[in-house]
């Protein structure tokens, strides 16, 4: 049974992540009076890209060719190390909050390097913007996770998600920390109001500018990795801050129920993101640090409220 659960845990993020992207796109399309593509379109896109030839610039170094594999692997490892439906697991090897945050940072680091590697003007722009944002977002991310860590007295994510349940007196702290976390989530996953995942305007891009030079299989990995990252952040947000509905034992019926509940939470995240992206304009680049500062302040207040 444990092997079985581990398998689900391991493949869950990469298997479900394209669906999230598809759902967000579908909701956005409907909100714009469009029919929109099927929610399974991202799978078809990945399949298509995986079967395409690719073009790699003559000037590209090993960083460009290996970055997609590094970035994708990082998301797989992180995806396997966070609580999705089984807080009873107690993964003590990679399930630590700091390991997760900085493992994701390795991915961002290589993403930024690969953007600059070919020397294209847009990649450089994207990388410099990404580094500005992720440096600012890091504080918010660490502090929001620290809030729940302090409440439950451990930095192990599995332990946090099983113990934060029933900490009713810290409800306000958790809520504030979640708000801070959500602001960072939008920045880290290249969503509104930071970045426009649907734009074709190279000059405005952040994430898309960095992967502009990729094609074929490597592009598929890059797209897949960013979908994984989106789901990882959804899972962190759902299970660390609102862990109700997580399985407390390893019986099959409990696990199935948990996965269903988890999917509902994910759907709510998708819906909120789609609503944000349909109802507001993207912010000017220089207003974004303010927003991340707000996230930081929310978390500091949340920590202050604990004591």
């Amino acid at each position: 049974m444990t092997i079985f659960i581990w398998t689900i845990q391991f493949i869950f993020i990469p298997v479900v992540s394209p669906l999230c992207v598809g759902i967000i796109k579908k909701i956005k399309a409907r909100l714009q009076n469009r029919e929109g593509a099927s929610i399974f379109q991202p799978y078809k896109d990945l399949w298509k890209l995986l079967h395409k030839d690719e073009v790699i610039s003559r000037d590209a170094s090993w960083i460009f060719s290996s970055a997609p594999f590094i970035i994708f692997s990082v998301t797989i490892v992180v995806g396997a190390s966070i609580p999705i439906f089984e807080p009873f697991f107690n993964n003590t090897l990679t399930g630590d909050m700091l390991i997760i945050v900085y493992a994701l940072a390795i991915g961002t680091f290589f993403l930024a390097l690969s953007g600059m590697d070919t020397g294209s003007a847009f990649g450089g722009l994207g990388s410099s913007r990404e580094m500005t944002l992720s440096a600012l977002a890091e504080g918010g991310l660490i502090f929001s996770l620290l809030t729940v860590a302090l409440i439950s007295g451990t930095t192990n994510l599995f332990a946090i998600s099983s113990s934060i349940f029933g900490q009713g007196q810290h409800f306000l702290s958790v809520l504030l920390a979640f708000s801070g976390f959500f602001i960072v989530l939008l920045a880290e996953t290249a969503r509104f109001p930071y970045d426009n995942p649907d734009t074709h305007l190279e000059l405005t891009m952040i994430h898309e500018a960095m992967i502009l030079e990729y094609s074929g299989k490597r592009l598929a990995l890059m797209e897949w990795a960013s979908a994984n990252k989106l789901l990882i952040f959804f899972a962190l947000g759902a299970n660390l801050f609102f862990p109700s509905g997580l399985a407390q034992n390893a019986y099959a019926d409990a696990i199935i129920l948990c996965i269903v509940i988890f999917m509902v939470k994910i759907f709510i995240f998708c819906l909120v993101i789609a609503l944000i992206e349909s109802s507001m304009a993207k912010f000017r680049f220089f207003r974004l640090p303010d927003l991340l500062l707000i996230s930081f302040i929310l978390n500091v207040v949340a920590i202050g409220l604990i004591y």
Binding site: L31, L201, E277, M280, K282
Partner: peptide, 12 residues
């Protein structure tokens, strides 16, 4: 113009 600011409702 609205589309380019990312204001998708107006764009559509």
């Amino acid at each position: 113009i609205m589309m380019d600011t990312g204001f998708n409702f107006g764009g559509a």
